[in-house]
Design a binder for these strands. Sequence first.
DNA 1: TGCTCGTTCGCACGACGTGCAGATTGGCAG
DNA 2: CTGCCAATCTGCACGTCGTGCGAACGAGCA
Lengths: 156, 156
Amino acid sequence: MRSPAELTEMFRANGLKVTPQRQLIFRLMHGNEAHPTAEGLFQTASDVMPGISLRTVYQTLADLASMGELRSLDLGTGATRFDPNTDDHHHVVCERCGVIRDVYVSGSDALHVEGLDGFAVESTSILFNGVCPRCAVGGSRATTNPPTNNAQGVMS
Amino acid sequence: MRSPAELTEMFRANGLKVTPQRQLIFRLMHGNEAHPTAEGLFQTASDVMPGISLRTVYQTLADLASMGELRSLDLGTGATRFDPNTDDHHHVVCERCGVIRDVYVSGSDALHVEGLDGFAVESTSILFNGVCPRCAVGGSRATTNPPTNNAQGVMS
DNA sequence: TGCTCGTTCGCACGACGTGCAGATTGGCAG
DNA sequence: CTGCCAATCTGCACGTCGTGCGAACGAGCA
C-alpha cells in the first residue's frame, strides 16, 4: 500500500474525495502488519476519531482493496482481514492466539499438482497453521494466550 | 469417510444413537465429491426426508467432522463446505461457477518458506483459484455458469 | 414393554457484512 | 471568499451463516 500522501493524491486524481476518515484509515493501515479486521480497525480508529462509523471503515477498506492498495484475506478466522502488503506472499496463523504473519514462499511453481483436469489456475494461496513462539513457551495444555482481535501494530 | 454401515456400527459402539436423519446424511455424504454446504445438503436431504431440520444437518456434520470422518473446509466461498475425502489433499475452486475439485499436491515439503521465525507449522492448506473447463469454453465475458449451491454428486 | 438419555426441531440470537436514505462536507467554479 | 453539487458519512435495517437453548421425541437397552 502506498503512503497516505500518495493515496491522497491518487484519490483526488480519480475524483474521489479525501475525508478525515479516509486519511485516518490510510494512516492506520500504512505499514500495519497486524492484519486487522474491519472491526478491529474501527476500534483503533474510534480512539482517535470518536464517532467514526464502522460502515465507513468497511467502505474505505473495500475501496482500497478494489484499487489494489491492500488485499482482503479470508484466513478462516471468522472475519475478513486486511493486509497493506501487496507483495506476492502467504500467511501463517497461530492456532492458539490467532496472530498472523506474512511469509514468503519460493518454489511453489515447482509443485506437482494432480487432479486439476482442465482447470486454468489463476492464483494460489498457501495458508500455514501452527503455533507462534510466544504461545509455544506457555506450554501446550490449555488456552494460553487468548485470541486477539486487536488492530495493534500501527506503524505511522 | 467410512461407509454408512461402518459409521452405524461406530456410532453405536460409542454410545451414539443411529437415527434415520443421521443415516440419511451418512448416505448423502458417502462418496460425495461435490463439497456441499450444510444448506445444500439440507435441500437434498429434504427431498428424501421432508421435515428434517437444518439444525440437525449442521449437528450431524459437526459430529462427523469432530470424529474425523469428514473435513470441514473454509474456501472463502461464504459457507463452510464438507468433504468426506479425508486424504491429505487440497482444493481448486472455479471463480466463475464455484465448483470445487480435490487436487493432490506433491512436493509441498520442499517449499522454501521465509518469515516463519519461530512458528511451528502443523498444517498447510493450498487453495487454487481458477476457471474450470466448463466455464472456460463459455467465453470469458459475463457471468457464464452461475455459481451452484447444489449438493449434487451423491454417489450411494 | 418401559424407561432414559441422546436427538431432533424450531426459534432466538450473535457475528459479519451490505443496502439504503437522509444529513453532511470536500473540492471546484465563480 | 462563497455557493453548489456530487461524493461521502452515518445509523439502521436486513441478509447470510452458524450456534445456544429447551421442549418434545425416539433409539436402544433392561
